[in-house]
Design a binder for these strands. Sequence first.
DNA 1: CGCCACCTTGAGTTTACTCAAGTTTTGTGG
DNA 2: CCACAAAACTTGAGTAAACTCAAGGTGGCG
Lengths: 239, 239
Amino acid sequence: MERVLYAGSCAADGATSLTDIDNDMHRESGSKSGSGRKHRLGSHEVLFYEGDRADRIYEVLEGVMMLYKLLPDGRRQVVYVLRAGDMLGFTNHDTFDCTAEALTAVELQVYETREVATSPLLQHYVNRCLLSQMEHLHDHTVLLGRKSAMERVATFLMSLVPDRGGANCSGPANPDVPDARSVVLSMTRQEIADYLGLTIETVSRVISQLKRKGLIKVEKQDSIQIQNVCGICQLTGMH
Amino acid sequence: MERVLYAGSCAADGATSLTDIDNDMHRESGSKSGSGRKHRLGSHEVLFYEGDRADRIYEVLEGVMMLYKLLPDGRRQVVYVLRAGDMLGFTNHDTFDCTAEALTAVELQVYETREVATSPLLQHYVNRCLLSQMEHLHDHTVLLGRKSAMERVATFLMSLVPDRGGANCSGPANPDVPDARSVVLSMTRQEIADYLGLTIETVSRVISQLKRKGLIKVEKQDSIQIQNVCGICQLTGMH
DNA sequence: CGCCACCTTGAGTTTACTCAAGTTTTGTGG
DNA sequence: CCACAAAACTTGAGTAAACTCAAGGTGGCG
């Protein structure tokens, strides 16, 4: 019943990355998959805006991006955080339903939509990504609809620790040994708040609470050492 | 920038329904698509549980279903509501990530996963459904993360009025004529609460407030007459 | 070294929650 | 068709979690 929340990328879910598939294609058929076009973004540069015409999709090769939506009065909700291996830009219509912005410097692979239509491998990978994103959205829906501020932040922290917290969680390698782990947030407190459906103050207070309890240490604003991964995991509401 | 929230089915998003595609296939190739197997569920019967092995997908032909997830302490979040034309049962792994339960009596078309793999038309339809669901999940994420109780209920009500509230909203046909419309909820207050991330009491209070303002009339528990569609639409937070 | 952006903390408020009745509706059997 | 029971819904009073507003602190970078 348990599952990894926000398990990073589609690639991390067991598929080889799309770039690997590209290599396969080169080898197998000699066909040039895509223009091989890469695109770079600086931190907080916008890739596309909600409503823009959608004619290409992207794979994150490096860095972190977010998708968000705005309400007319300025309230923002970050609906997805994308990492290496994740794809973005697919849409049901001819326009994007979210804005895509870089959280860090980002490198992207660009694919024209007609490329996707003609490449079964590409299509297959896109499909895996869609299913993976859907599952994460389901988990995030539970977080936003039913979890407390503490549970949300704990869940967010656990999502940054690969291979822990899910059904396949091994627990601490050795229960007697301290179970610490450093994670890089790649997001400001405001961005985390907009992702978790909280205010910046609430996120800050929860982090301070965890600090006081000795469960985490804030190394830099952007980097947190989790002193006791299992301890944080117990706070996610999933145990 | 605006978009219909929860716009019912994938079919409603402009695709022909899968059943139509089946008919095409019969005509064009004479191939029998699928076993033609149908499945019926009574109200509140469970189709599958989170964690069950996933080996088929379903199309809702008639009735309403929901997908939900439970936290270990019993908190429930309804993550999706499915209507005629919608598909369910796809997964990234070999198990379902949600429980699927009928909200009303339901008729389903059953497809084996290998059928989908071998039918391009079926695949194409499934893909459209995935994209449509993703978009609705994005909108629902905004609702859960950033909207007030009143905005959530108003958004929910608007989702039951086809062709209104979205970018393509025509407004009232004639602004001088009363702009009323009856909608059937197909959900109890508790189910609505679990869908909107609220408690049953809050949903009830908001509905009473709307009643007092004369914006709606509760005909039966399950059926609400919206006296002024535009008035409700103004309360969704999207205008 | 100082500025700017970002983060933290406190005090007071608000929204939605919990708990506890009561009421209405629906479905069933007489 | 009515009576009854069960389920669903509503309402009120009090509480708690997270929000708003307002300072003040920290750290990274020119």
